[in-house]
Amino acid sequence: MSPARLFTLLAGLLCAALTHGEAQNDGWHYDKQAIMGTEVHLQFWHESGEAAETITSAVMEEFRRIDAALSPYKENSELSRVNRQAGQQSMQISDELASILDKSLWYSKKTRGAFDITYATLGSLYDFRKGERADQETTEDLLPSVNYRHVSLDRKNRTLKFLDSRTKIDLGGIAKGYAVDRAVAILQQYGVQNASVSAGGDARLLGDKRGKPWLIGIRHPRDRSKNAAVIPLENTAISTSGDYERFFIDSDDHRVHHIFNPATGKPAETDSSGDDSDSDKLISVSVIGPEGFDTDPLSTSVFVLGKQKGIALIEGMPQFEAIVIDANHRMFFTSGLQQ
């Protein structure tokens, strides 16, 4: 190796080492891991690097624990056992699952069925990686089994039964919001005051970014390299639901995505023909509020309800705001954000 080449290599290594040292010494700590079928991002400030490693491990372990309990893809998860057994007989469930189901059913009633965890009865037949979906005959046959009223929960005694034996549930519309809240609770237990935690489209912010707000980008739904908006936030949660997260394009050039309309048993229609008939259909919804346990199901609800009913829902809920993008790529805000 020539002296010039060696000097260039050593200079590069020194620069990298200095940059790494600065990142570690400024008190900010970062981690990213693949959990819950998405990327979990963690950023927080703590003066001790040794303590930060313990905190990071505790947060990521909590995400893995929740995934192990609530994943519909893990055969031994509590959710999978529920889907195998609750349609046949009443069964005992954990207090955690009972709490999540109770919240889910509350939002089902609040939104008159726009949020409905029993969408999985048909949703489980879709494979977005393979481009597979339930056919029309199967959809019509199973549609009566998609109804949150089939979920009979005894919250006090922690028992659950499905009143329709074919009903299945999925907590994809609430579990990640719940998980980021749990992560923030752990950070607070360790005395952390400034942090950002995200899992897919759900994020929870603890405090501010040491004297300035966190800047949260809302992805452009048709150009992943751009943001449709950047919102300054602190000490809050934000959840985004869009038709671009998991989808495939069918033979008719139609976007088939993962947000289901329980009334039809199919993905909520979002494709635009470029005219005003699509003005109520949404392709992206972001809801801001105190906790992810609420903003997560609300973003799904607004997406299914459409612009008019969805914005009206959020306007009637103090402490919550929404940003929606319709099928014609126009952006709308609830009244608290219009300034």
Rank of each mutant, 00 (worst) to 15 (best):
G200H: 10
D67C: 04
P232W: 05
L105I: 14
S335D: 15
L153M: 11
P267E: 07
M91T: 01
D127Y: 08
N76C: 01
A114R: 11
A322D: 09
S241Q: 05
T111E: 10
P262D: 04
I218C: 05
E140K: 13
E291Y: 13
E50F: 09
A229V: 03
Q24E: 14
A183G: 11
G87P: 09
G37H: 10
L122V: 06
S57G: 00
W28C: 01
L18A: 10
Q308G: 09
K309A: 15
I231D: 04
R210F: 03
G131D: 10
R204W: 05
L142T: 01
K212A: 14
I259Y: 10
G173W: 04
A34P: 04
K103E: 12
L42K: 12
G87N: 03
M331T: 15
S272I: 00
R112H: 13
D253R: 09
E53C: 02
A120L: 03
N25D: 08
A68W: 09
V287A: 05
E78K: 05
G173C: 06
I66C: 04
A114Y: 12
Q33P: 00
H29S: 11
V151N: 09
R330I: 01
H258K: 07
I325R: 04
D102P: 00
S301M: 04
M36L: 15
N147V: 02
M91P: 02
Y30L: 12
G87E: 06
L143R: 14
K281R: 14
T139K: 05
L9P: 00
K109M: 04
T295C: 13
D154I: 03
L171H: 10
L97G: 02
L337F: 11
G274V: 05
I216E: 01
R224I: 03
D280T: 04
P213N: 08
A175M: 06
A69I: 13
Q338N: 12
L42Y: 12
K130R: 15
V256S: 01
D181A: 05
S165Q: 14
H254S: 08
R182W: 04
R246H: 14
E75T: 01
